[in-house]
Simulated assay, not measured.
Amino acid sequence: MNTKQLNETSKFLSYVLRHEPHAIGLQLDSEGWADIDSLIAGAAKDGRILDIALIQAVVSSSDKKRFTISDDGLRIRAVQGHSTASVSLQHVEKEPPEFLYHGTATRFLESIRQQGLIAGSRHHVHLSQDITTAIAVGQRYGKPVVLKIEALRMYQQGFKFFQAENGVWLTNHVPANLVSEKD
């Protein structure tokens, strides 16, 4: 398996496991799990050749740990980033560190200054504990900027925080007054 094949498969899995499972006739349960055999069959109808070895290679090689396979090896899910209404992952509430970071593009700054950070089509706002990850995320959308979030202060004010299996921090909304540009 080459890097291109792994990247293309990862993007396809993100698409169907986070956003559009019905595009290939796939059913996700409320926790986002899909039957791997059904995923392979649905992908084949879409003209994509997947097998268990390729899926396992994508899961294990993903530096961001986007996907997880069930303990019995029969199901797969995206660990966060869902926009499909059929999925409602039950993350455990957790106290965040003092600061978390959010990577975005400079073109979104004006909107963020007015509205804060909102989930948009996803279920949560995604935050990271380290600046390097935030920069990498921001670069996907244009000229990157890192925002510093007063996470602990938010938590003390009653905002709920969760941490996904891959370490990404999740919250519903970040008010504009608790967001600043990282120096």
Rank of each mutant, 00 (worst) to 15 (best):
K4F: 13
K4G: 11
Q5P: 12
E8S: 08
E8Q: 12
E8T: 04
K11R: 15
L13H: 10
L13M: 15
S14H: 14
H19G: 13
H19I: 12
E20G: 08
A23R: 12
I24D: 14
G25I: 08
L26C: 12
L26Q: 12
D29V: 03
D29C: 03
D29A: 00
S30K: 01
S30W: 01
A34G: 13
D37W: 12
S38W: 06
A43F: 07
A43L: 08
K45P: 12
G47D: 13
I49R: 14
L50S: 09
L50Y: 10
I52L: 09
I52R: 12
A53H: 06
L54R: 02
L54K: 05
A57F: 14
V58Q: 06
S61N: 14
K64V: 09
R66F: 11
I69M: 15
I69Y: 14
D72L: 02
D72I: 05
L74D: 07
L74E: 13
R75I: 07
A78V: 03
V79R: 03
T84Y: 06
S86H: 09
L89C: 04
V92Y: 05
Y101H: 03
T104V: 01
T104R: 04
A105V: 03
R107S: 12
E110I: 03
I112P: 03
A119L: 03
A119T: 00
R122M: 05
H124Y: 15
V125L: 11
V125W: 10
S128K: 02
Q129T: 10
I131A: 02
T132P: 04
T132I: 01
I135F: 06
V137S: 06
Q139V: 10
R140C: 14
G142H: 08
P144F: 07
P144A: 07
M154Q: 03
M154Y: 03
Q156H: 08
G158T: 09
G158D: 10
G158H: 10
F159S: 13
F159R: 13
E165V: 03
V168G: 00
W169C: 02
L170A: 00
L170D: 04
T171F: 00
A176N: 15
V179T: 08
V179H: 00
S180D: 02
E181S: 00
